[in-house]
């Protein structure tokens, strides 16, 4: 187990950082090039002011009309994304490891709070899963890859929960936790998880077009 742990926290982690960083840069660059080649007018519309106005409006809970129309789904999405970032970034064990490797430190939240945030993330994943299965129009648009992506996101949280509580096989779950986290990070630039990188750009474009040209709100 220790050999695998060292492989996952050593070379494999560096590979993950490499793939994630350069994958993200590649994704951004390819979008930029495609835009300039195929729809160059998009570049002329971009406005920082209206772009930010739209992004901030869409980040404000229940400000967008679509959020008011779908209160349950919107709330789940909102809570899910907050917990998704806070749980791993403010977990004491993660910060301790970063401190030991690179001397990077920031405040952490209590383990029991993160425990709840993890459960919320998993509950949201279950919600998405059931929604894809049961809601007709969503099911129609669902392909196998959607379930795989959902599993890629849920797995690091499930295995993290198992490893933290040391339930069943601790070593197995910790290694699987690290591996699944690395798979998730590497998948971001190359799958639909890339909305993490891209969605601010599309939102900013919509905001710019609506603000500058149509003189209207886009939320």
């Amino acid at each position: 187990m220790n050999e695998l742990y060292q492989l996952l926290t050593g070379p494999m982690l560096w590979l993950t950082f490499f793939v994630f960083t350069f994958g993200t840069l590649y994704k951004l660059l390819s979008i930029l090039v495609l835009t300039i080649q195929k729809e160059p007018f998009i570049m002329s519309v971009f406005s920082f002011k209206y772009g930010m106005r739209s992004i901030l409006s869409w980040m404000t809970p229940f400000k967008p009309v679509s959020m008011k129309k779908h209160p349950v789904l919107s709330s789940v999405i909102y809570v899910f994304h907050i917990c998704l970032f806070i749980a791993p970034l403010f977990l004491m064990a993660h910060i301790t490891l970063l401190d030991e490797s690179w001397g990077l430190v920031w405040p952490s939240l209590s383990d029991s709070l993160i425990d709840y945030l993890t459960l919320i993330v998993l509950a949201c994943c279950l919600f998405y899963f059931i929604r894809r299965l049961t809601q007709k129009e969503v099911n129609y648009l669902t392909s196998q890859s959607d379930y795989i992506l959902l599993a890629i996101v849920a797995l690091p949280f499930f295995t993290g929960l198992m490893a933290y509580h040391q339930w069943f096989a601790y070593g197995f779950f910790l290694n699987l936790h690290i591996l699944s986290g690395e798979i998730m990070l590497m998948a971001i630039p190359f799958t639909r998880l890339s909305h993490m990188i891209i969605s601010p750009l599309t939102r900013a474009y919509m905001g710019s077009e609506f603000g500058e040209i149509r003189h209207a709100k886009d939320w």
């Binding site: 187990m1 401190d99 030991e100 040391q166 601790y170 910790l174």
Partner: peptide, 23 residues
């Protein structure tokens, strides 16, 4: 940090002893 580094660095160098938090 002193405890963690003292134990883990030696375990890593000697390739013996626990490295995972929960061990």
């Amino acid at each position: 940090k002193a405890f963690h580094l003292k134990c883990k660095r030696c375990h890593q160098e000697q390739k013996k002893g626990p490295l995972m938090c929960g061990d």
